[in-house]
């Protein structure tokens, strides 16, 4: 069973935007779509390491700000002709609070 920890209020994340959560193994980008769905992905484009949290969010996709790779936030898969994958993490919203997998809090620096 996945344990969840509270990382903040849903309203702290702009719609069609993102905030980052720091972990010992790098940042996680937490996205909020126009219809308030949240996603958590590694904040690192597999192409050149671009911060996905700074990308333009459209539908349930995000475009990397460095070279316009587009990722489906459901799967973390690169779209179109680009091939690559971003890791996704369990995340959910409860009573206006955003909860993320507790494993992220306990993981140690590699």
């Amino acid at each position: 069973m996945t344990l969840f920890v509270d990382i903040g209020a849903l309203d702290d994340i702009p719609q069609q935007g993102a905030r980052v959560v720091k972990t010992a193994q790098g940042c996680i980008a937490v996205f909020r779509t126009a219809d308030d769905t949240v996603f958590a992905l590694d904040d690192r484009c597999p192409h050149k390491g671009g911060p996905l949290s700074e990308g333009i969010v459209h539908g349930t996709s995000v475009t990397c700000p460095l070279h316009n790779w587009v990722f489906d936030m459901n799967s973390g898969q690169a779209q179109g002709a680009d091939q690559g994958m971003v890791r996704t993490y369990p995340i959910r919203v409860e009573a206006g609070r955003v909860l993320i997998s507790a494993r992220l809090a306990t993981r140690k620096a590699a």
Binding site: V5, V21, K22, V30, A105, T106
Partner: peptide, 13 residues
């Protein structure tokens, strides 16, 4: 505050 990380889980760990 909006320019800083939403949460810092390295501290909690």
């Amino acid at each position: 505050p909006k320019w800083a990380p939403l949460a810092d889980l390295t501290l909690e760990a």
